[in-house]
Simulated scan of single mutants.
Amino acid sequence: MTPLRGIALKLGSVFLFIVMAALIKATSQDVPPGEAVFFRSVFALPVILGWLAWRGELSTGLRAERPMGHVWRGVIGVSAMGCNFAALGMLPLPEVTAIGYAAPLMTVLLAALLLGERLRAVRMTAVGIGLCGVLIVLWPRLSVDAVDRVAAIGAALVLASAALRAMVQIHIRRLVQTESTSAIVFYFSLTSTGIALLTLPFGWTLPGPEAALMLVTAGVLGGIAQILLTSAYRGAEAALLAPFDYASMLFALIIGYSVFGEVPTGTMLLGAGIVMAAGGLIIWRERQLGIERGKARPGMTPHG
């Protein structure tokens, strides 16, 4: 696979995830977050199983060396998804996307705290700049006025989702030491389906035909997007693909305006731009360190 194909797959996955979020947002006034998570998860399962069978990886995808590791990944992931889905009903799509960019910044901090990764000056500076950008996006939602209370709760939910997604990334870094990517993808959909089903007693509704179609489509698109994302990283370096995550802002702006009539504020765009710049700085620095490690590797002894 060429790098250009990897980039195309990454952009395809980013676009489908934003379309999925838009479909969830469109049903958010009638369908509670737990039910939306269930549809997102259960209808992704056939897509993922079909993909694993087509690649001849079905047996690998169903093999779990650490079952409880997958369960905990599911618990944290479902919590993140539920918070994000709830926030989509309270905030504009581009704003949810912008605040969500805090997740990679939090991942850097958690990796230092929990995995002992070295927090270098450039990383610390970038994280600080990025968090300032997140604060700029959040600032208009920090009002205690009754009018803004729902939006403030939505902003808090997105921030909680970002923190949980960062925890998921740390957990996956440990999980990949014994589990295959196929198993992680499959068991997340399986466990998230089961966990979401537990929310059935808490206000599930019977969606109408149009809402049901949108929810099913969201699940299928989520499964396809996950496959495209996995395939992209099989064919291109993570450092090359990472910047294309920020294409989600462009897609969110277009869909938010054309579908929901959401006009972004200057404050939101400024904050999002600062967060994206900080993320770009981290990506650039990681790429430089990767090049330096690559140059040093030929001179290493077998013990490193």
Rank of each mutant, 00 (worst) to 15 (best):
M1N: 08
P3S: 08
L4R: 07
L4T: 13
R5W: 14
I7H: 03
A8E: 02
K10V: 14
S13E: 07
F15I: 15
F15G: 08
I18M: 08
A22E: 01
L23S: 03
K25V: 02
E35A: 02
V37M: 07
V42D: 06
A44V: 13
V47S: 04
I48G: 00
I48M: 04
G50V: 12
L52A: 01
A53R: 14
R55W: 08
G56C: 14
L58V: 04
G61N: 09
P67D: 12
P67F: 08
I76L: 06
S79Y: 06
S79A: 13
G82F: 02
M90V: 07
L91T: 00
P92W: 01
P94K: 09
T97A: 12
G100W: 00
P104E: 03
E117A: 12
V122S: 03
R123H: 11
G128Y: 06
C132H: 04
V134M: 03
I136P: 00
S143L: 12
V147K: 11
D148F: 13
I153Y: 10
I153C: 05
G154M: 01
A155T: 02
A163Y: 04
L164K: 04
Q169C: 14
H171C: 08
R174G: 03
L175G: 03
Q177E: 13
T181S: 09
A183G: 11
Y187W: 15
I195N: 00
L197E: 01
T199P: 12
W204H: 05
G208T: 02
G208I: 05
P209H: 10
G219E: 07
G222S: 06
G223Q: 11
I224L: 09
L228R: 10
L229H: 05
T230S: 07
T230D: 04
A232M: 12
L241E: 00
L241G: 04
S248E: 10
M249P: 00
F251K: 06
L253A: 11
I254W: 06
S258G: 03
T265C: 10
R287G: 14
Q288E: 13
I291T: 11
K295Y: 15
P298T: 08
P302C: 11
P302I: 13
